[in-house]
Every structure is written in structure tokens, then in C-alpha cells.
Design a protein around this nucleic acid. Structure first.
Lengths: 335, 335
DNA sequence: TTAAAACTTTGAACTGCTTTCATCTTGTTT
DNA sequence: AAACAAGATGAAAGCAGTTCAAAGTTTTAA
């Protein structure tokens, strides 16, 4: 039905091998035949069938990305970076979401690995099984971990410890002492996760300012939504009346909930309560009051991840690459 | 390198054809051989190479989605629907963003069509060329248009006219007469675009309530962001001091800008100014005041689009399908 | 007991492209 | 004019599957 390399060959009066060589810019082809063949290619609007090509080359020209959901702020911004970077390349992006369903992660990874669905694999804030990682290594399929760390894999993350530290330090410098912190799930004492790292940075800052750590000023949340923010502030206030600051390490979006709840209760920000967010969303500059926040360029993370993925897919990376992007404190009016 | 169907066949002591049949659950295979082969498949962790399979079947098991960007609210919510629906299916999702660059749209579509990269194509709020649409039709690649309308393609949209009408009607019923409307770009008088449809619905409501249409109460915006909302309200007020309502047909997000600007100017919502948004974002329920808005379930749009895409890919849809989802007025406190 | 029917299994052909190797042209040199 | 090198082309094999027709096996009927 559709145009194949043979159709081009016939019309150009050469063999299909020659056409293939033209496409691959083989030096053996004379400029004349090259021009002739290329003319036919454009005339017939010939595009190589990527399935056939992939099959014979053992390549897919595809980068697979796995995330829990792609419809959240974090993933969205990450994808923006991927988009920006992949625009110029020949690679396609394939998305797989686990939707937090048990077993799906394994299923996806097996499919990609054994079914040869991608040339590189990016795991977005999901920790793969150790055995699976080993399987990837064995089969030579590069794997790039975002906001997770594992030996043998390329790792790309933001410095969450530093982010937590910067936020708390800023508040402490302003003389605040009762600083509530809102974080994602800590899963016990598991180290290396971003909520834990941010909490640790916060604790380190307290130490430096000789302020005691108060367990009641830590609020773990789950959904990262607006409501979480509102509830967290309420919770803090019900336990500790002297609260004078909130560091919402769970993200700006959740932080908007904190602002809203404060407004509702007649608490003035930043006079009565200083608030610092985490993310540096575009919107956080225009809410009321403009949010002081830790900016981490997830978009840049995406761009870097894509670059690494391509290099890894082409075998340019022998050693696992570890990149840590530095967050930045953006001072606005909320603190 | 990796396990092929032949490895399975050899180990199971059957021909590779038999293995293929087992995989496809062919009734001709006896339960005995089936069980035997399946055991080997799991043992060897065999997964069919989807490139080879796609090549021979002329199928890719992929749905391509094209949008300007995927990192906006609309696209994100649409993808959420796709995600929900595609979870159970065997299909993969491929995203292509045009980034508004000239020529990219055509390039993407050609690649998908002639390079056989997908079994169905979803265009998200982008109008393809007429010739290109015809090419798709010729080659039997189904095309699903979201929020756009073209003859011969499957079409899926929300009833923007109705939405515009409902919003304006609600405000008029409350006695408001000077209703500013904020819409996306109208591109002259081009019909069928969602901003235009919403405006028309608004005008129809005015007519029914015998209120004259005032050109100065229409504000076209471009970026759909927070600032657009702030600027629009300022613009209205500079022209028309008696403004008593704003219908932000450009979306809730922009509408938050309107609320913010009103707050800054000391204008009480809804007492001095009634405000109605458009989208029904999750967040709009929790801002201050909770936003009265037109809810359109973009997520549902995504789900439906995926279903149609699959059906179309499998040749189950002879006639172009046209679905219009009804928006809904959510009455909260802002109007 | 044997032929026919019914059911399983298998070999071969095919999908569209790349790549290696052998062949066929050239053009150059002697 | 013959010999040779170098460059251009083409034939064939292979990638990993599916599918159809044919072969093999078992069951049924005569």
C-alpha cells in the first residue's frame, strides 16, 4: 500500500540497495545518483518504515519514560524539558504510567527490556527493583533514574538537602523559630528520598541556629494537592499556637493551600506567618502574596535527562553519570 | 542476543509457528502443547519483539497524539484521560509537540503517516491541513480531532456554545448586565473555534435577556495565564466603570488572575463583581472565593478519544464519529 | 483393515529495510 | 590495447515475527 524503498528504486532506475545507501549518505554513491534518488524520494514522499529499520538495526530510536502519572506538575515540567530537547532529535518518546498499581512497574520494565521497545529507559521518581536493574545492565539497555539513586544507573537529581537547608535558613535568618515543615511521605527512615533529604536539610539549618527540632512541626502528606496544604496548616495550629513560619517542602501547589487557609483564618502572611514553598512554579510569582520559594528547574532536569539518554543509547557513556542540579532560593514577599 | 521465538521453539521442542500460535491463543493448539510452550515462555521470559510483529502485521500498536505543548492544563488533563483509558490496553502512546514552530505540524504528520508510526492519530486542538487529512484518509490512518471540526475526521469536542450560554445566563439571571467576557484569540471571524463559540453562546444569552452587546466588554487574550486575567480586568475597568460581572471564558487559570486583580483593587467578589470561570479545575473549588465555573471534563474527553482511537485503529468505525460533550455550570460563591 | 475425515503441527513465504560480498563499470596506467 | 585499480551497483542473507498451504497424525466410519 504505502511507498517502500523498492518503489523509489524502481522509479529512480537503481537498486533498492542504492537507495538505502543514499539515505545513509554512503560515500560510495556518486553525487549524480544521489541527487537523482533524492529527487524521487521527495517526489514520492518516501519515509522509511521505522519498524523495518529498527528490526534490522536492533534499534528503536525510542526513549521510554516511566512515571507514576504524567498528569502532575512535576512530570509535566519534566516532560517540557524532554520536549524542548527532543525537538531536534530523531528520537521518539514513549510514555508508560504505572498509576501506582502493584505489578505494573515490573510489567512495563519487562516489556520494554525483553520486547526491545526502547534504546534507553528513564524512570521518573520511581525506584526499580535491584534485579531488574541488573537485567537492564546485562542486556545493555541504559537506564536513567530521576530523583532516585542506585548504583550502576545514571542518576539525575536536584539537591534536596540543599533546598531544605536554604529554605529553613532563610526563615531562621528572619528570626522565625517555630517552623512547620510539610513534606511528602517519608516511608519510615528510608534515606535518599527527596522528602527525607529536604527534611534533613531543614534539620541541619535548625542545628546551625541552635533551634531544637520539634517532631510536631513535621507534617507528612500524600496527595500533594491544595487540600493537603490547608489541612497541614490546620494541623500545625491545633498543636502549636506559636507557629510563626511554614516551609512547604511538598511543593508550591500544596503551598497555595497553606496561603488560602491562612487567609481564611485571618492570619497575615508574612507578618504573622512566613511561608516558603518548593518548586518555583510560574504561578507562585503571581499569587497573593508572591511566594518565596525554592526553585528547582525540573524542566532542565528533563533536558539533561534526554541528553544523557541519547548519549547512553549510542554507547557514548561508559561510566554511570551522576548529575545533581542545585536549587535556588527565590525571595519574594511571603517570607 | 535476546530471546526470540525460535529459542522458545527449540527449547519446547516444537516449531516456531506453534509458539506463535500459542501466543495468539489459536484454538488449533492442544492444551498439552500450549501448556508446555507457555512454561518455556515464562521460564525464558520471552517477550515478542514488537518491531518484528508490527512489521509483519502492518500494525504499530501505537496511538500518536499531537499537540502544541503538552505542558498546559488542557493537554495535561486530556492526557490524564488517555492514561486512565490506556492503562488496560496493549497500546502505547506517542506524543508529538509542534511547539508552534512553522512546518513542524506537517513534518510530524508526514512522518507518522508515511513512516507508519501509529495506528491512529489524535490531534489535540490543532487543525490539520485539508490535503493532509485527505492523505490520511487515503492511507486508512484514522484521525481524531479534538476541539476542532473537519469533514471526514472523527471529532470530539465540548459544547462551547452551550458553555458560553450557561455562564452568561447565570450572570444575567442574577441581574448583572455589564458582563465583561475574556476569550482566547478569535482570529477575525473564523467560525467553529472554541473562543468564538463561547462568545456566541454569551451573545445569545444577552439577546434572550434583551441586553445589548457591547464590543468594549470583549477582551481577547493570548497566553491564557494569570497575567492575562489581571490585565483584562484592568482593561475593562479603564473603559467601563459600571462593570458588574466578568465571564472568563479563557479558563479558570486566567480567571484566578481576575480574582487577584479584584482583590488588589478592593473590589468585593461577588458583591461588587460576579465572576464566572471556565474549565472546572480542581483548584477552582478552593480559591477565594470558590469559583463559579463551567465545568468541562477534559479528562473525559481524553478517555473518549482513546476509545475512539482504538476502535478506529481496529477498523470498527466506518462512519466518522462526532461526539460533543456537554459542559456543566458549577455554582459556587464567586457568582 | 483401510479410506476418509478431522485435527495438529510445520515449512515456506512474506513484511521493509540494512549490510556484506561479489560483480560490473569505469578510468587510469603501462 | 591490455591490465589493473577503484568506485558503483546489485544479489542475497538476515532481522523476528505472522500466516497460509501442505504435511503429518489421529480418529472415525465403512
Amino acid at each position: 500500500m504505502s511507498i517502500t524503498i523498492k518503489d523509489v528504486a524502481k522509479k529512480a532506475g537503481v537498486s533498492h540497495t542504492t537507495v538505502s545507501m543514499v539515505i545513509h549518505d554512503d560515500k560510495r554513491i556518486t553525487p549524480d545518483t544521489k541527487k537523482k534518488v533524492q529527487a524521487v524520494i521527495t517526489e514520492l514522499k518516501y519515509h522509511p518504515n521505522y519498524l523495518a529499520r529498527g528490526l534490522v538495526q536492533g534499534k528503536t530510536n525510542t526513549i521510554a519514560i516511566m512515571a507514576t502519572y504524567f498528569s502532575n506538575n512535576f512530570e509535566m515540567n519534566f516532560l517540557k524539558g524532554i520536549e524542548q530537547q527532543s525537538g531536534e532529535s530523531e528520537y521518539q518518546i514513549n510514555q508508560y504510567s504505572t498509576r501506582n498499581k502493584p505489578g505494573v512497574k515490573e510489567q512495563i520494565m519487562e516489556q520494554i527490556l525483553y520486547g526491545k521497545r526502547a534504546d534507553a529507559f528513564i524512570s521518573l521518581a520511581i525506584k526499580p527493583d535491584k534485579n531488574m536493574l541488573e537485567e537492564f545492565r546485562k542486556n545493555g539497555l541504559p537506564i536513567i533514574l530521576i530523583e532516585e539513586e542506585m548504583k550502576g544507573a545514571h542518576t539525575l537529581k536536584t539537591d534536596n538537602y540543599k533546598g531544605g537547608f536554604l529554605a529553613a535558613e532563610h526563615l531562621l535568618k528572619k528570626g522565625r523559630k517555630k517552623i512547620g515543615i510539610i513534606v511528602g511521605e517519608l516511608n519510615g527512615d528510608e534515606v535518599g528520598t527527596s522528602p527525607m533529604e529536604r527534611l534533613k536539610g531543614y534539620q541541619r539549618a535548625l542545628e546551625e541556629f541552635n533551634v531544637d527540632f520539634d517532631k510536631d512541626l513535621v507534617c507528612e502528606i500524600k496527595d500533594f494537592d491544595f487540600k493537603d496544604g490547608k489541612n497541614s496548616l490546620s494541623k500545625f495550629l491545633s498543636v502549636n499556637k506559636k507557629l510563626d513560619a511554614v516551609f512547604c517542602a511538598a511543593g508550591d501547589y500544596t503551598c497555595f493551600g497553606v496561603l488560602e487557609e491562612a487567609r481564611k483564618r485571618g492570619i497575615k502572611v508574612p507578618q504573622d506567618l512566613s511561608v516558603v514553598g518548593y518548586d518555583g512554579l510560574e504561578m507562585s510569582a503571581v499569587v497573593s502574596p508572591p511566594l518565596t520559594t525554592i526553585k528547582q528547574s525540573i524542566t532542565e532536569l528533563g533536558r539533561e535527562a534526554f541528553k544523557i539518554a541519547i548519549d547512553a543509547a549510542n554507547g557514548k557513556l561508559k561510566e554511570p553519570k551522576n548529575i545533581i542540579l542545585q536549587p535556588e532560593l527565590i525571595i519574594r514577599e511571603s517570607a
